[in-house]
Simulated scan of single mutants.
Amino acid sequence: MKGRGFLRDLAEDLLWSAGIAKGMRVLDLGGGVGDASLIAGELVGPTGFVVGVDRSPAALAMAERRAVQAG
């Protein structure tokens, strides 16, 4: 992800403290535009998997675009 800020660092610390680690499978309910899902994806790495779910088709479309850009 591009750029780091206080809130991004805080979210990463929260997910790490919750036990998110390499190789895990994570479900992000109400994930919106994918902020937490993208951070979780970095934490689980290439051997893990993250699924983000949201009610808003527009939010999901944006999250998908961001995930593709992030690789």
Rank of each mutant, 00 (worst) to 15 (best):
G71N: 10
V26N: 02
A61F: 03
L27M: 14
A40H: 04
W16V: 06
Q69A: 15
G32Y: 13
A11E: 11
F6H: 08
A40S: 09
P57F: 15
A63D: 03
S17L: 13
G31K: 05
V68F: 00
Q69H: 09
P57W: 14
Q69V: 14
R8N: 02
A18Q: 15
L29P: 01
G32F: 06
G48I: 02
R55F: 10
R66D: 06
A70Y: 05
P46N: 12
G30E: 08
D13V: 09
A36M: 15
L27Q: 07
L60K: 08
M62A: 10
T47A: 11
G23C: 00
A59F: 09
E12V: 13
P46F: 02
G5V: 06
A70V: 07
E64F: 10
A67C: 04
G52Y: 02
R8L: 04
V50G: 00
P57R: 15
G30W: 15
G31P: 01
A63V: 05
R55N: 10
G45Y: 08
R66G: 02
D9S: 10
T47R: 12
L27P: 03
G19M: 11
L60N: 05
S56F: 12
A36Q: 14
V44N: 03
A18L: 14
V26S: 05
W16E: 12
G23W: 00
A61V: 11
V53S: 06
V44H: 00
A58S: 08
G71M: 14
A63R: 06
L14K: 09
G31F: 11
G45S: 11
V53T: 11
A59S: 12
D54L: 08
G41Y: 03
T47G: 04
R65G: 10
S37H: 06
E42R: 15
V33W: 11
R25F: 03
R65P: 00
F6I: 13
D35K: 10
A21N: 13
G31W: 01
Q69K: 14
D9R: 10
A67N: 00
R4H: 08
L27K: 10
A21C: 11
